[in-house]
Structures are given as structure tokens and as C-alpha cells.
């Protein structure tokens, strides 16, 4: 297998089908995401985008299909096991830990990066202090990266909406993911915030993280994505570079049909 082909096969799903009773949410969906790229998934409402994320992260059990990351199979695993493989996501309807400070939220993101156990924290061993210090440094770095350092001791629920979106991204980054799934990261943001978010997402890719993003804001998608996958009624109808997708008649029809 050539290096190029291996890069193609970094993160991929094949023949994914998902049914709820009689309703088909996903039907034979496949995707291929290159290492260290930004893949957008678009489609009209109800196309199955978030369902696909829920399948990838183990919240829904798919009826058929397989998903692999860097050669290992991740389909059929429980959510907390999927994240052990380096896949972390954010949520369309924010899932901030409102009972914690901003910094504590991000520290929770690094849950798996510390290995100390009950004896270490009950007895406050040297390992506990060393690993907590490392977590803290990493968390502060992540807050710095998204620009929330100034608010780190604020209760997370008191952050304005736009900042809560950034906090979710910082929390996900603190897990040092290999693949970051962003579920409508620009929803509810104003134009200025969206534009800043675009820059931030590109910088995440520059850090060596593969990003998959479900997003409705077409300007943002077309501006920053490397490749775009289009879903409609639970099926893939197109895929390619932003320029290719924009010209695809099936895509145009799907979006016009929605209007």
C-alpha cells in the first residue's frame, strides 16, 4: 500500500446503515477522511449528519457497516471506549459542565491523560501532584489557544453563548484527540464570531488534528474545508473539494428542493 493510499484510509466508514423502527436514518453511508485534514459534512435538515456523529461516537448502534480509525475498528464500541481511540466530539446543543469553572471543564477534558488511581488521590502521592500539574498546564494551554484564559475561574454557566462554544472546543482539545468531531460549531454565533471560529478550526488542523465538522453555514464550510461530503435523506449524494461540490447538480437540487 502506498503512502498516499494509507493517508486516504486514515479514518473511514463503509456501508453505514441506521434504522429507527421503520425509519431509515442512514443508508449505506461511506466516508473517507485524510489524516490531518478538515472534512465538512453538509446536507439539508434531517439528512442524517448528527446521526452519523452519534454512530461514530457510539451513542447509536448502527445496523450495518464498519468504521475504522488508523487501521483499528471502532464501530460497535461504547462511547467512553471510542474516546479512548482518540475520537472526541462537541455538541450542537452545548453540553457544558455548568457546575464547574471554565478551567475545571477543560481539566475534565484530559480525564484519560492522567493515569493515577484512587490510592494516588486518596493519599496524595507524588504521582498525583505531578500528573495534576501536567493536566493543569495542558488545560491552561487549551484555554489560551481558544482565547478564554481570562475567564478560567468563572463558573462555566456564566460564559456568554459564543464563549461556551469555544469552551467545548477547548475541553475537547484537552483530550488530545486524533480526530475532533465538531457538531455545528457556528450555530448561534454572529458573523464576527463565525469568522474567528473559522481561523481557530484551521489552526486546530495545523496542530495535527483531523477535524470532521457538521455545519450549516455554507460560507464557513466552503472557505475552510479541505473536502466536503453531502448527505441527503440518509444517503451520500456527493463528495469532493468545496469547488467540486458547489458545482454538483445533485447538491444544487437537494438544496433547492429544501427551499
Amino acid at each position: 500500500m502506498s503512502g498516499q493510499a494509507h493517508k486516504e484510509m486514515y479514518f473511514h466508514g463503509d456501508g453505514i446503515s441506521l434504522r429507527f423502527g421503520g425509519v431509515t436514518a442512514l443508508s449505506g453511508v461511506g466516508f473517507h477522511v485524510r489524516r490531518n485534514s478538515l472534512q465538512a459534512i453538509i446536507g439539508p435538515n434531517g439528512a442524517g449528519k448528527t446521526s452519523l456523529f452519534n454512530v461514530i461516537t457510539g451513542f447509536y448502534r448502527m445496523d450495518e457497516g464498519e468504521i475504522h480509525l488508523d487501521g483499528s475498528r471502532i464501530s460497535g464500541l461504547a462511547p467512553h471506549v471510542v474516546s479512548r481511540h482518540g475520537i472526541v466530539r462537541t455538541f450542537q446543543n452545548l453540553e457544558i459542565f455548568t457546575n464547574m469553572t471554565v478551567l475545571e471543564n477543560v481539566l475534565t477534558g484530559s480525564h484519560l491523560l492522567a493515569g493515577y488511581g484512587p490510592l494516588d488521590f486518596f493519599l496524595r502521592t507524588r504521582r498525583f501532584f505531578r500528573e495534576e500539574r501536567e493536566l493543569r498546564e495542558r488545560a491552561e494551554g487549551c484555554l489560551d489557544f481558544v482565547g478564554l484564559s481570562a475567564h478560567r475561574d468563572l463558573p462555566a454557566g456564566q460564559l456568554p453563548f459564543g464563549s461556551q462554544r469555544l469552551l467545548e472546543i477547548a475541553r475537547a482539545l484537552a483530550a488530545e484527540p486524533r480526530v475532533l468531531l465538531l457538531d455545528e460549531p457556528a450555530a448561534g454565533l454572529n458573523m464576527k464570531e463565525t469568522s474567528a471560529l473559522g481561523g481557530l478550526i484551521r489552526r486546530i488542523v495545523d496542530r495535527g488534528i483531523t477535524v470532521v465538522m457538521v455545519e450549516h453555514d455554507m460560507d464557513l464550510v466552503m472557505r475552510i474545508s479541505d473536502r466536503v461530503l453531502v448527505l441527503n435523506y440518509g444517503e451520500v449524494i456527493a463528495g469532493g473539494t468545496p469547488a467540486e461540490v458547489q458545482k454538483d447538480p445533485a447538491v444544487v437540487a437537494a438544496y433547492l428542493g429544501e427551499e
Binding site: 461504547a78 467512553h80 472526541v88 464547574m100 475534565t108 484519560l112
Partner: peptide, 12 residues
């Protein structure tokens, strides 16, 4: 306490 969903995504 606040979100089992988000906790499990972070590996808990």
C-alpha cells in the same frame, strides 16, 4: 452530574 453524555465522550 450535569451531562453523562459529555462525560462519556471524554472517556469517563
Amino acid at each position: 452530574h450535569t451531562s453523562e453524555t459529555a462525560a462519556s465522550v471524554l472517556g469517563v
